[in-house]
Design a protein around this nucleic acid. Structure first.
Length: 111
DNA sequence: GCATTGACAATAG
DNA sequence: ACTATTGCCAATG
């Protein structure tokens, strides 16, 4: 079947989103990654906005470390109130936010 | 189908 | 350091 009807198939998982989630799950505690780098590591160098779109739909109970994803300026891109939670989680892992910024040179994940 | 939106990023002023 | 502009591309209306 080249076509899939909503009635008998509920699997929209594209390879891109799958790859993004797999990379995301690998990010170590206490480190961060940017949207663009996460996308690039998943094999889609121009999909930074896709990453945000995916993270936005993650269920609240997800075990994925969504809070370790920040933008290329070292800032949190999430609107409040989620931003506070993200800062708190990061600080809990030892990632400090100074003047609203995170030192990428220090915390960015490089495998 | 076209227009707008968005948890981005690079560049220019 | 900050704002504006442009490119990007799937999702949404």
């Amino acid at each position: 079947m080249t076509r899939n009807t909503s009635a008998d198939n509920t699997e929209p998982a594209s390879p891109m989103l799958t790859a993004i989630c797999q990379v995301l799950a690998r990010i170590p505690t206490g480190q961060v990654i940017t949207y663009g780098d996460l996308a690039a590591m998943a094999g889609y160098p121009r999909a930074a906005r896709r990453v945000g779109q995916l993270l936005r739909q993650l269920p609240a109970n997800t075990t994925l470390p969504w809070h370790r994803v920040i933008n290329a300026q070292g800032r949190i891109s999430v609107p409040e109130p989620a931003a506070s939670q993200q800062r708190q989680r990061l600080q809990q892992e030892g990632v400090i936010t100074l003047a609203g910024r995170i030192d990428l040179a220090r915390y960015q994940w490089r495998p």
